[in-house]
Every structure is written in C-alpha cells, then in structure tokens.
Amino acid sequence: MSRIQCPHCHRPQSHCLCPLIPSLDSRTRVLLLQHPSEVNHALNTARLAALGLNNAELIVGEVFEDLPRLLDQPGYQARLLFPGDEALPLQARAPSDEPILLVVPDGTWRKARKLLHLNPLLAALPRVTLAEGAVSRYRLRKAPGPGALSTVEAIVQALQVLEAPVSFELLLRPFEALIEGQIVAMGTETFRRNHAEK
C-alpha cells in the first residue's frame, strides 16, 4: 500500500515540507530542466527550488521541443548555469542591468551533460559558473569534487550573487529538513558509519 503524498511537494503526507517552503520573489527568472530520472528521487531539490521561487519554472524531459519559446523571454538574457572552459563567473547585476534567465539542468553530471547534448540550443547558450570552493550541505552523499552542489544549493548561491544583498537562504530550509529526515530514517549509527566525515 503506497503512502499518501502531498500534492504540492510530492513528499509523503507525514513528511510534508510545505510549511518550510518559502515564497520568494526574484528578479532573475530560473528555468529548471530536469532529467526524467530525477522526478521520483527522494531528494528532488530542483522541485524544492521551483516551489520556493515565484519566478521559476520546472520542465521535465530529455529533448525540450519548446526550448526556443522557453528561452525567448523578452527583457531577459539567457545564461546556462553549467561549468565549462568558456563559463564566466557569475557577477552581481545592477538594477539597471537586464535580468538573467538562469537555465539550470538538473540530474547527475552525466545526465545533465546528456541534456546539453540532446538540446543543441541549450548547449549554445553563454555559460556561467559559481565561485569555486563552495561546500555542499548535502551530507547524504559524497560530492564528486569540490564545489559540487545540489541543484537547490547551486540556485541559492547563484541568486545570492546575482541579486546581492538579497538573501535566498530560506530556500534551503526544506532541503535541510529533508536531509535531517533521511538521516533520522536511516538511524544515526548507519549515517555515521556510511556518511560522516572520516
């Protein structure tokens, strides 16, 4: 028998995160392109980001036929948040600057690269990247390298730069509650044995 799910956050009703999800305004528009394999992932942080930001949209797929329309947002400059040799570090935007349409692929690194490969229009966007050395709060898995963040963490960090001094930390509250809930479910001893810093 399956557990009843919250229709909003898609978590089991007993672990609903809705009271922790903020409703934040941003000048930056965030377009999340999620690989289908992430949709039912227990820690779907892209969904949390989309729910917490009023100016965000989450689209699930591999080939995005509607991409030209999604990227053509009058008054916005589209930028792909993805590392690469040609990626420029994000910088604060003055109120007079045109706002950014921040396009964020969501999936494992391999799946995110596949999204770029299958959508040449996406791969052709000017790339931006986060400052190096950010430490993930995602204590349930080892980061593949320094600066590897969950999707919601990357979005928060990007918005903190683009819209400084506005804070977007509230977006991380449901994420941290989700992590805590997973640790409680697995048991402190199991967490220490498998995930705590060595």
Rank of each mutant, 00 (worst) to 15 (best):
F82C: 13
P83I: 11
P83L: 09
D85L: 09
A87W: 03
A87N: 02
A87T: 01
L88G: 00
L88I: 09
L90I: 14
A92F: 01
A92E: 10
R93H: 12
A94V: 00
A94G: 03
P95C: 12
P95Y: 09
S96K: 12
S96V: 08
S96H: 11
D97W: 03
D97I: 01
E98F: 00
L101G: 04
L101P: 00
L101F: 07
V103H: 05
P105C: 05
D106R: 09
D106P: 03
G107H: 04
G107P: 04
T108I: 09
K111R: 13
A112N: 01
K114W: 08
L116N: 03
N119L: 05
N119Q: 10
P120L: 06
A123C: 01
A123D: 10
A123V: 00
A124N: 02
A124Y: 00
L125F: 01
V128P: 01
T129F: 05
L130F: 10
L130P: 07
L130S: 05
A131S: 12
A131G: 14
A134W: 15
V135K: 15
S136M: 03
Y138T: 01
R139N: 04
L140T: 15
A143Y: 07
P144T: 00
P144K: 00
P144H: 02
A148L: 07
L149F: 08
S150W: 09
S150M: 02
V156M: 00
Q157D: 11
A158C: 09
Q160N: 15
V161C: 13
V161W: 12
L162D: 10
L162T: 07
L162K: 07
L162E: 08
E163D: 08
E163T: 10
V166G: 02
V166H: 15
